[in-house]
Design a protein around this nucleic acid. Sequence first.
DNA 1: AGGCTATATGAACGGATGTTCAGAAAAAAG
DNA 2: CTTTTTTCTGAACATCCGTTCATATAGCCT
Lengths: 164, 164
Amino acid sequence: MRQIAGEVGVQAGALYNYTPDKQSLLFRLMRDHMDGLLAARAERGDGGGALDRLEDFTRFHIRYHIERPNEVFIAYMELRNLEPENFAVIERLRGEYESELEGILRDGVAEGVFHLTDPKIASLAVIAMLTGVNTWYRPQGRLTLDDVETLYWDMVRGAVGAAV
Amino acid sequence: MRQIAGEVGVQAGALYNYTPDKQSLLFRLMRDHMDGLLAARAERGDGGGALDRLEDFTRFHIRYHIERPNEVFIAYMELRNLEPENFAVIERLRGEYESELEGILRDGVAEGVFHLTDPKIASLAVIAMLTGVNTWYRPQGRLTLDDVETLYWDMVRGAVGAAV
DNA sequence: AGGCTATATGAACGGATGTTCAGAAAAAAG
DNA sequence: CTTTTTTCTGAACATCCGTTCATATAGCCT
């Protein structure tokens, strides 16, 4: 708390005009992040075939997460510091987001364009793969964000068994 | 330290007969984990074509990590608590492991069995995907470890552009 | 200008942390 | 059994942490 206050340019006590305690601050940070993610995702049109929707999801996920490295870092590293009740809320939101992808995968299987025996597991695998970009991507690196999106889209398309 | 001592059944001070300080304890834990991982990996035969070697890597990675959830958890969550010098050592070991996979992918591209424009990125993507199993797998779940291995192998094979 | 509300300070609190160390206890060696 | 070595205890240390609160400051309204 003293560190946060320091970066804001204020004493630690002053923070308690804005949050009842540290746990609430962390929770609101993480819930706002998930709300923002779900809202931004909802803005994307969900029309078209499963293949197009999966490509859109892939590019969206990478871009949204890369643009918010701090939130993403906290969302993953501080999960264990949430009180059980707060943890449950965040996990539910995360589940909602995963269901978005799972729905696309199921539709694609139904369309016959994806070949997956377990869309639920596949959605977790794809999200893990995509979120992994945050651990190595550097804006000044050799790849543009567009390059990265395309590379990952190729891999995701293959992973779900879509034709080349 | 008091918590660790408690689980061992000893007072905190006694731990300092076995480690000079907390940082060394964490570092040794993580280095031993990486050493073990590399050693276990080295024991696997590296003969055969790239496709077989990739399948072996996939199954090996999932199984080795699932059998050591605590070490893996610490290896990921406590990275930021390593002093720079120690961090560099762990990162180098991790790089060694990633290079194993990258080598397989490069060989597969050379053989014409994989279709990847960037084997380095692909290796990171595959490892992220595989390690993700640790976040959801539960031994009493609906899938056996063998099921999981096979599901992921199907996805990995597709992701690297291998023929079905 | 004066009063009111919102916000900030700075010291203090109780408790947790990593670490040290003199002395007790336990184990090994003779 | 006695001595020596290894291991453990229990208290103490300095420092850090989240949080509270009386007091001071700042901004706004009339």
